[in-house]
Amino acid sequence: MYEAVHAYPDGDATVARQAMTAARYGYDGIVVRTRAALESGGGDETGGENAPATDPAAIADEHGVDVVDAVEIDADGPTAASGAVGNRRADHAVVCVVGGDDRLNRYAVEEPRVDVLARPNAGGGGFNHVLARAARDNEVHVEFDLGPVLRETGGDRVRALADLRKLREIVTYYDAPHVVSANASSHLELRAPRELVAVAAEAGFDGEWIREGLRAWGSIAARNRERLSGDFIEPGVRRGRYETQR
């Protein structure tokens, strides 16, 4: 099972600390949503020689969990988001678009190059049957963000729970792919998979469905890593052993 986290400089814990905590909590890997936190995102140049570790493979070796470099695109509108997706797709295993308004949600689910529509309900954004169908056809995973359920109180939490319920009803009806995350921005906000399942069960989710959502991060990463590797030509076609490098 994988969890998608924010890391320093975007969050309050470095990638290595998040990986260490995730390993202790029993995750198989973490998806780092912060672009500047890992090497391929350009994190190396910003911090100088004593910057926190940025090499995903080395961190993965050290702590025994997979570290996936991802990017979260938080744009003002579909045009800006589309440019950013085009630029980042080739460098990152997972591309998320932060939703939150109707036009962005619509753009994200209709773009096959996007892997995950993150936080579709965060702003005033809505989700409906049209978007669910598009998400299913384009294999865009809809994120179920349990963060507000864990960390908010009162009215905000009630609204978050109501939104999650509505989203769940639409997404399960159309069988659109989904991912689940606690959206942790530091190691203190991370929760173990069993805890997430228990909280979600109180909110009316099925336990196996939540675990499926946590595993989905891993399968997205595996698929895209294969596609980004040099041997991949198109679905079903790979460079074989008789092909020589030209």
């Binding site: 320093y8 814990a13 290595a16 004593n50």
Partner: peptide
């Protein structure tokens, strides 16, 4: 980062004090 900072070390966990509060780091960082 770019400066010498004080940190609280507990096993492999390093909590580094910065201007905007603590940042969690690991021995590997």
């Amino acid at each position: 980062g770019d400066a010498e900072r004080s940190a609280v070390v507990c096993g492999d966990a390093y909590d580094v004090r910065t201007e905007s509060g603590y940042v969690g780091a690991a021995a590997f960082d």
